[in-house]
Design a protein around this nucleic acid. Structure first.
Lengths: 264, 264
DNA sequence: CTCCGGATACTCGGCTGCGAGTAATTGGGG
DNA sequence: CCCCAATTACTCGCAGCCGAGTATCCGGAG
């Protein structure tokens, strides 16, 4: 568990629902679904029952009673306790008041983007742009529909927010795409060189001189050590400062056999 | 596991590193750290070794050899296999090309925002704005520093992206804050009424008439059923359409004892 | 009256993720 | 030359998460 005794966001939803009225787990799940909350809070049965049990253990909710309809399986109805109510408010306060670091997949992908060849990156980013555009439009449509049905914005804030983020992502992808295509992105020569055909002697020579020019300008101190290993060359002047390095791109094409590790 | 045989993004980082050159796990972790990739790819030792083992099982990497320095524990050096290289490219293509749904905590919090009283929400959102502003500034400073050190933007794309998203979040929070404060947010009267003192007879009367006015306008069809249960009143005209509902706010103040469940 | 699809209401086993714990080694200050 | 802190390099066990599976019931078509 993290700081909270029960850290799954689904638990927060359970607390919020039980703050409305007592319920049994399946009703929680169907209510969340009905209200489209499963779009912002990941819901699945396994987790739901695990989380309910954990909340009971933590004393945030209690089984109020069990009912049975005909020969259906018994349903246990839970209700919020006073500590549970406190936890609900405290947790909400934390989530709303303090931005938290989130690890998204696109972050991961961007941080490793240099492993792809620039051309591939452009194609794929264009793909993403297309799909994002479609999502943005779908979002507009959904909001229009909801408005027509009279759903006040208050109850769809999370979708508004998601729409804003998607738009920002789209904008960023478009900027990036433009800069790569126009070859104005700082570092693109290095990127291209790292993906140049290693059997082409001219490209290899270019790579070495380009890298040396970069280093002569004192650019990217942390890269020095990495480049030394990568290129088997020796560049004088200074040791790598810790914390100055970043992602070195992939240097080998798939067909290129790996070279032996650098001596230590 | 998801679609991938190994789905942890850390596995992607491992593949990317081994695409550069063979390494042992600890070196992977220190390299990721050195390059600041732990800021966009969650890294911890437990997961790293689990993931490496899983990649071996999947045939994406193999133990090339083991070395021992003096009396240190043996280090196993891994290298990428051809299927591993394919997986790396395929996975990157998926991540870059296709936007994926992410569940963030703030999404969850926003989707449950009505459980907080409007006043509390305003205070907390103002808090968030403050911290976000600080983060945005820290981001600028970091970029300036990196620039001075000569780190090409290409190797800090993920930070650029995160900065763009943070800015978008800040903008959204400011819009929302303004709208709540100015009471122009659609649905705010309902929100206030749901948090009105239930012992104040005037407020309660207001609540009923407000809700009935909403319903008379045909607003928020899906809310109908919820309100019926919540208020114990009966409003004629139509059953709730599935998929039209959203989040009903909390109706009880913490001191208010719960009422018995509605009869079925 | 009977069949079938969809809703209801969970259960279960396995795997992943995590972070605290461990233990040896190196380096630098006194 | 010795000691302590930091670094190197993992190990371990448990909790949580997941999603496929199960079993029952209801309502409408034929």
């Amino acid at each position: 568990m993290g700081r909270r005794k029960v850290s799954n966001p689904l638990a927060l939803a359970v607390l919020a629902l039980l703050n409305e009225r007592p319920m049994h787990p399946y009703e929680m799940s169907s209510t969340l679904r009905e209200r489209h909350k499963e779009e912002s809070i990941k819901l699945n049965y396994g987790s739901l029952y695990t989380v309910v049990e954990a909340l009971v253990r933590a004393g945030f909710i209690v089984a109020a009673r069990t009912v049975r309809d005909g020969r259906r399986p018994e349903r246990t109805i839970y209700e919020l306790t006073e500590p549970g109510r406190v936890e609900l408010y405290d947790w909400m306060a934390e989530l709303v008041g303090t931005p938290a670091k989130e690890y998204t997949r696109f972050d991961a992908a961007l941080s490793l983007l240099p492993v792809l060849a620039p051309g591939d990156a452009v194609r794929l980013l264009a793909d993403r742009r297309l799909r994002l555009t479609a999502e943005v439009e779908a979002g507009h449509a959904a909001r229009t529909l909801a408005e027509r049905e009279g759903l006040p914005r208050l109850f769809a804030l999370e979708h508004e927010y998601q729409a804003a983020l998607r738009q920002a992502e789209l904008d960023y992808v478009e900027r990036l795409l433009a800069e790569i295509s126009a070859r104005t992105l700082d570092g693109i020569e290095l990127w291209e060189l790292f993906h140049a055909d290693p059997d082409d002697p001219e490209a290899s020579r270019d790579a070495v001189t380009a890298v040396q020019r970069e280093l002569a300008r004192g650019r990217w101190a942390g890269m020095r050590a990495i480049l030394l290993r990568e290129m088997g060359a020796h560049v004088p002047g200074g040791h790598p400062r810790p914390g100055a390095g970043s992602c070195p791109p992939a240097t080998r094409s798939p067909s290129d056999p790996h070279r032996p590790e650098d001596p230590r």
